[in-house]
């Protein structure tokens, strides 16, 4: 796993250098990817992405409310999405309703980028714009994405959206752009401040407590304890992607 985590080629180094310069110029408001590259190699105290961690998320579908959309709204607000749901609109997280065809049992669950350990989107991306941070968060580098959409073809969860229109009113912490592909970042800007992703926070604030976010490598984390306590699954486990997002109750 570690060799996946380290962008160790000369090319990656060149990109790092380039991005570092960019980060200096544009200050703290740049893309999370830039922040990572810039910060990880400066002597900044926060040391944002470390392979000692792997961020993950556990979703308990039995606690997830049918018709509840709080996580989706929180994501849209945090990341500056319009919340519209046309075929060309971006949706980083969506509520999926599933009904067992045999028993008729109905469930509702949030679906977003599963932050795969072996992400197909990263494998196929021709430029390396799709990338996995050392701490397991999968991101698109806004500065190298050419908008070919191959990653969207490859993602088994339809987690990605293509920005079809010029954007206005962006959240300065979450730069997006026409012609690029984007997806859930686990709210990397918040995670780097030791906060929870917006969806998780909203779910808990509303008292549903259907989502637990944390570090999969920390045996003491609430996430790991919950994972140990009850069985959970990966969606499309057959693809062996070792997703960072897991579900209980399906």
């Amino acid at each position: 796993m570690n060799e996946h985590d380290k962008p160790n080629s000369v090319e990656a180094q060149a990109r790092r250098d380039f991005l570092k310069t960019g980060a200096l110029v544009a200050g703290a408001t740049l893309a999370p990817g830039v922040l990572f590259y810039g910060v990880a190699h400066s002597r900044a105290p926060e040391e944002a992405a470390s392979s000692d961690k792997r961020f993950g998320l556990l979703i308990d579908t039995t606690k997830c409310g049918d018709g509840c959309n709080d996580c989706v709204s929180a994501c849209n607000t945090e990341n500056g999405l319009t919340g519209e749901t046309g075929p060309q609109d971006s949706q980083w997280i969506r509520k999926v309703d599933i009904k067992d065809l045999r028993t008729g049992y109905v469930q509702s669950l949030p679906m977003m980028c599963q932050h795969c350990e072996n992400p197909p989107c990263v494998d196929v991306c021709p430029t390396g714009a799709s990338m996995k941070r050392a701490d397991g968060i999968v991101l698109v580098d806004r500065h190298t994405c050419i908008g070919c959409r191959y990653c969207m073809m490859a993602c088994p969860y339809k987690a990605r959206s293509f920005v079809h229109e010029p954007l206005t009113d962006q959240n300065p912490e979450v730069p997006r752009g026409k012609g690029c592909v984007e997806s859930c970042t686990f709210c990397v800007q918040r995670v780097d401040r030791d906060e929870q992703p917006a969806c998780v926070e909203a779910c808990n604030t509303q008292g549903h407590n259907a989502m637990i976010f944390g570090d999969l490598k920390d045996p003491e984390s609430a996430l790991n304890k919950a994972l140990k306590a009850a069985s959970s699954i990966e969606v499309r486990a057959d693809l062996a992607l070792n997703t960072g997002v897991r579900y209980q109750g399906i």
């Binding site: 969506r94 309703d97 009904k99 045999r102 679906m111 969606v235």
Partner: peptide, 15 residues
């Protein structure tokens, strides 16, 4: 795309 085999799936994202 078949994410949940044996289930009927609906969402705002055309699943």
């Amino acid at each position: 795309m078949q994410m949940f085999p044996g289930h009927e799936v609906t969402s705002t994202f055309f699943d």
